[in-house]
Design a protein around this nucleic acid. Sequence first.
DNA 1: TCTTGACCCTAAAGCAGCTTCAGGGTGTTT
DNA 2: AAACACCCTGAAGCTGCTTTAGGGTCAAGA
Lengths: 155, 155
Amino acid sequence: MKIGVLAKQVGITVETIRYYESEGLLHPALRDPANNYRRYDHSHLERLIFIRRCRTLAMTHNEIKILLQARVEPDASCETINELIDEHIHHVQARMAELQILETQLIELRSQCRAAHTTRDCGILRELDHPIEESSEAQPEHSHVPGSQCRIERH
Amino acid sequence: MKIGVLAKQVGITVETIRYYESEGLLHPALRDPANNYRRYDHSHLERLIFIRRCRTLAMTHNEIKILLQARVEPDASCETINELIDEHIHHVQARMAELQILETQLIELRSQCRAAHTTRDCGILRELDHPIEESSEAQPEHSHVPGSQCRIERH
DNA sequence: TCTTGACCCTAAAGCAGCTTCAGGGTGTTT
DNA sequence: AAACACCCTGAAGCTGCTTTAGGGTCAAGA
């Protein structure tokens, strides 16, 4: 099948498929000698479905590559896979905890402005003007709010 | 003060400060004619603290620009600000809901492999091989799992 | 005085996972 | 023959920085 058909079957764009090929996630397709169009078969479809399933679970391309590799090594131990998923779950949970805190802070902030009608008297702006005091367990060094290196960014 | 001092006071890197200037978040600093070094005063410090506070609340540069603008228009209505924060809270909540679902799915997935020791028999890989069936309220068109355009990506 | 080290400057590339754009061929229909 | 849908490549854009390369400035110590 041609790339457009494959894309429709999987529910992604043709650009994404070409991108996956360039990323090494998807094997390069055979080309039609007549016009250089990519030709796909059922194994490509299956692999793409696998990849998309992983992506909806917010895995990175690197993680997916590991899983794809495991997939073609039926005799290998699946310990790596289990660890990968466990670690991934931890990332998701950590991200949720961060957002939980964020939500609390934002709702607190929002509560500062219920009545005022000019920015001059807006409690929100006033509160944003002050640095963040860490409630407890503050790092002694200097108060970098770390940045968290979280990979669970989309979907 | 010089950029390094300012950076230390706020707890960010000099590169970030220069980046904020290039982004239009921070007004360009006056330059020391002798050596072209940036010179900052207290208003820059305050503005940077404001910006950082917004960033720890995961606001985008665009949102921050709107708030910075409101900050210098004391007579304007603060309705925009309230709406901005409300919408932002919604984004955070939506993101959390997504992650909640993700967590459930991942834990379900993880439970597929408790005993097996080769990838051949790994329930995780097996489950990843199948497309995602949306439990209910499926879109009729084709089953795009949307992608969610979420901006709450870090911190 | 010379050198060392800390600090400053700019411009460009890198990260992740795509999407969009520019510019151009192919293939079928009308 | 024109129109339209589809295919191709390569490069840039998105977000919020960080990193790298290459090069000046300045104060202090040998």
